[in-house]
Amino acid sequence: MREAQLGVGAVAQRLGVAASTLRTWDRRYGIGPSGRSAGGHRRYTPADVARLETMQRQILTGVPPQEAARVALEAPPGEPPAPRAHGAGGNRVPLRADHDERQAAEVRGLARAAMALDASATAGTVRNALRRDGVVRAWDDLIAPVLIGIGRKHAVSGDCVEVEHLLSAVVLGCLAETPAAPPNGRPVLLACAPEEQHSLPVHALAAALAETGVETLTLGARVPPPALTAAIRRTGPNAVFVWSQTTETGDPAWLAELPASRPPYRLVVGGPGWNRDRLPPHITRVAAFPEAVTALASLPGAR
């Protein structure tokens, strides 16, 4: 019996992406339909759809599309690929196959709960992951993939704003349950760039650092340079971390105007919004969430 084959529209709906995205993946990365209809039109076979689902899972964990496509094309049929390291350093611990399957199911479950605006189920899933895996792994393996997926749906359709707001509020509440680190004299200041409203990663970083015993002061979203300057002068921080999510907030020119202090502090930036070519040379840029935690927790005097 011939396996059912699908057109690009049906596959796009199944994956929650635009049909144009599937055509781009086919054209750029060679991950497209291999079947044909009776009339000679290209159709996606079940194996093609499985490869696309693999590629999508890889992208949701931060793997670049070209690498994600290569992983999907090289994976043996019916066998999940080993998770790829991502972020600077490539030091992510590989997951066992059974762990990978559990992780994928948990991501789907959290996405369904968020899409249903089920705050109780959403909170339960997030809270369990934080307690079981810690902030870094729960963020990387569960929370961030779902946020990225919701953001992609919004980019395609303009919908899901209420879903993102609910999920962000629930995650923020769960992160707030992480016990604060004891005062250590010189905290790490965490802030968003001026006009940057995406503050959830900063709160996640605060919770992850608290787990390692690092004291933080979180200033939150849209921190004007004069306010950050005042905070630096009043607290004498060990480090200052500034987040930029979007290119509109990633102009780093103002960072050079931040005041010096004694003893000196480390200035670290993170997020995809920064214009890397214009970052002053004395600034440390981190490319991934685990890298940010490691960089800030390993500073002398951090604990």
Rank of each mutant, 00 (worst) to 15 (best):
A72M: 03
R57C: 10
P64E: 08
E67T: 15
V71S: 03
L110E: 00
P77E: 11
H86G: 14
E101S: 14
A75F: 05
G90T: 05
D118I: 02
L73Y: 04
P64W: 05
G90K: 06
V93F: 04
D118H: 04
R92Q: 13
G109C: 04
G124F: 01
A119Q: 08
P80S: 12
P77S: 07
G90Q: 10
H86E: 13
G78Y: 03
P76L: 03
G90Y: 07
E79P: 03
S120F: 08
A113L: 00
R112C: 01
G124K: 01
L110G: 00
P94A: 06
A113H: 00
H99D: 15
G109D: 12
A85P: 15
T122L: 02
L117E: 04
M115H: 10
A105C: 11
R96Q: 15
R84G: 02
P80M: 11
L110D: 00
L117A: 10
M115E: 13
Q58C: 15
A82C: 09
P81L: 09
P83R: 14
A72E: 01
R112P: 00
M55F: 04
A121T: 13
D118W: 03
M115R: 14
D118Y: 03
L95C: 07
V63H: 04
R102W: 15
G124S: 02
Q103P: 03
V71A: 03
P65T: 07
A105W: 09
L73H: 05
T61Q: 14
R84M: 10
R84D: 04
A104R: 15
A123V: 01
G124E: 02
Q103C: 14
A69L: 10
R84P: 06
G90S: 06
A113M: 00
V93G: 06
G78P: 05
P76R: 03
L110N: 00
G89T: 09
A68K: 08
M55C: 04
R102I: 07
G78R: 04
R102C: 10
A113C: 01
R84L: 13
V63E: 01
P65Q: 07
A69N: 08
A82Y: 06
D118E: 06
G90F: 09
E106C: 11
L117K: 05
A97P: 09
A116W: 04
N91M: 12
A88L: 13
T61M: 11
A88C: 11
G124C: 02
E74L: 13
R70F: 06
A121D: 10
A104W: 14
M55I: 02
G78I: 04
G78V: 05
Q58R: 10
Q66A: 15
R102A: 15
A72W: 02
A75I: 01
R57E: 14
R70S: 13
E67M: 12
A85T: 12
M55Q: 03
A69E: 05
P77A: 10
G78M: 07
H86R: 15
A121C: 08
A72Q: 01
D118C: 08
M115Q: 12
L117F: 11
G78A: 08
G90R: 08
A119T: 04
A114P: 00
P65F: 10
R92G: 12
G62Y: 04
G109S: 14
V71M: 03
A88R: 14
V71G: 01
R92N: 08
P76T: 02
P80K: 09
G89Y: 12
